[in-house]
């Protein structure tokens, strides 16, 4: 189905293919995400999920096809321009500003939120000081939302692994997403942390954030998704509700059948 057929689609991936030399990472991908929906993109290792994220967010150019967000084609946009439209991603491998504090990480993440002007900044005008103070308040808010406010002063790299993952999400949230792309957010988290993360996702959904989730944790995916898109060898083999997916013979054969990894 294309965006034209889905007036509610906020994000639409149409006929996207990605070739790396001879390797076909994505052969022909079509799916969409509706406003406010939580869609999971699942598939075995190497299926092309991260590649799809890279294409959607402007980090890689697709060999063919196009991506639209709120009706705007993302073709040719740079990552920061995609982010400016409100489409923000996290990374599969922990990706932080390692050497600086957690609080400063989030302040950097809030880049899009600042209203400070250059001249006012150099003159340290009241308007800019106020903007800076507000930015700091917002940074605290995000840290509290994610639940790592007690770590604010720590260097990002010195956080426990689970908290580093959360800081990655905090950075993305600071960039004010209307649609959030999460690449394996709970990988490496223990059960308690995963539980806390699901709570966070529910809070975000309550605010109306659209979410596209890549995750290997099947209980989580089945539990929180509105819809699931299954990818195998660069091809979409199923697209439906969790129940439909669980009973889909192709999926059981191609994916669940070979044993759930990273469980």
């Amino acid at each position: 189905m294309t965006a034209a057929q889905n007036p509610n689609a906020i994000l639409a991936v149409e006929n996207v293919a990605m070739h790396f030399g001879g390797l076909i990472a994505i052969s022909d991908m079509n799916f969409h995400v509706n406003e406010g929906e939580l869609v999971s993109l699942i598939g075995p290792n190497g299926a092309g999920k991260t590649t799809a994220f890279n294409i959607i967010t402007g980090f890689q150019r697709p060999t063919k096809g196009r991506v639209t967000f709120r009706g705007t084609s993302l073709g040719g946009l740079k990552p920061h321009q995609v982010t400016a439209l409100g489409l923000v991603r996290t990374f599969q491998r922990t990706n932080l500003f390692d050497k600086i504090s957690v609080f400063e990480n989030v302040l950097i993440g809030l880049h899009r939120k600042t209203s400070a002007r250059l001249l006012g900044t150099l003159l340290s005008l009241p308007r800019e000081r106020k903007a800076e103070a507000e930015l700091r308040d917002q940074a605290w808010e995000i840290l509290r939302l994610v639940g790592i406010e007690h770590q604010a002063k720590e260097r990002a790299a010195s956080l426990p692994y689970g908290d580093q993952r959360l800081l990655g999400v905090a950075l993305a949230l600071a960039a004010q997403p209307s649609a959030l792309l999460l690449d394996e957010p709970v990988s490496g988290m223990n059960a308690t942390e995963t539980g806390r993360f699901i709570e966070l996702v529910n809070k975000l959904r309550a605010r109306g954030t659209t979410i596209l989730l890549v995750e290997h944790d099947m209980p989580m995916v089945m539990g929180i998704s509105d819809r699931i898109v299954v990818l195998n060898y660069g091809r979409i083999i199923a697209n439906g509700t969790p129940k439909e997916i669980q009973n889909d013979p192709d999926v059981i054969q191609a994916y669940l059948g070979q044993g759930v990894k990273h469980a």
């Binding site: 920061h80 500003f97 390692d98 950097i108 880049h111 900044t121 800019e128 800076e132 993305a172 960039a175």
Partner: peptide
């Protein structure tokens, strides 16, 4: 000092520390 303590300077430092991540939060290189 004022530049560095502002979002402008933070953007510069962000690019130095991790360009990929900086662009993904909306910082233009």
């Amino acid at each position: 000092k004022r530049l560095i303590d502002s979002p402008y300077g933070r953007a510069m430092i962000a690019l130095r520390e991790n360009e990929t991540l900086a662009t993904s939060v909306g910082i233009s290189v």
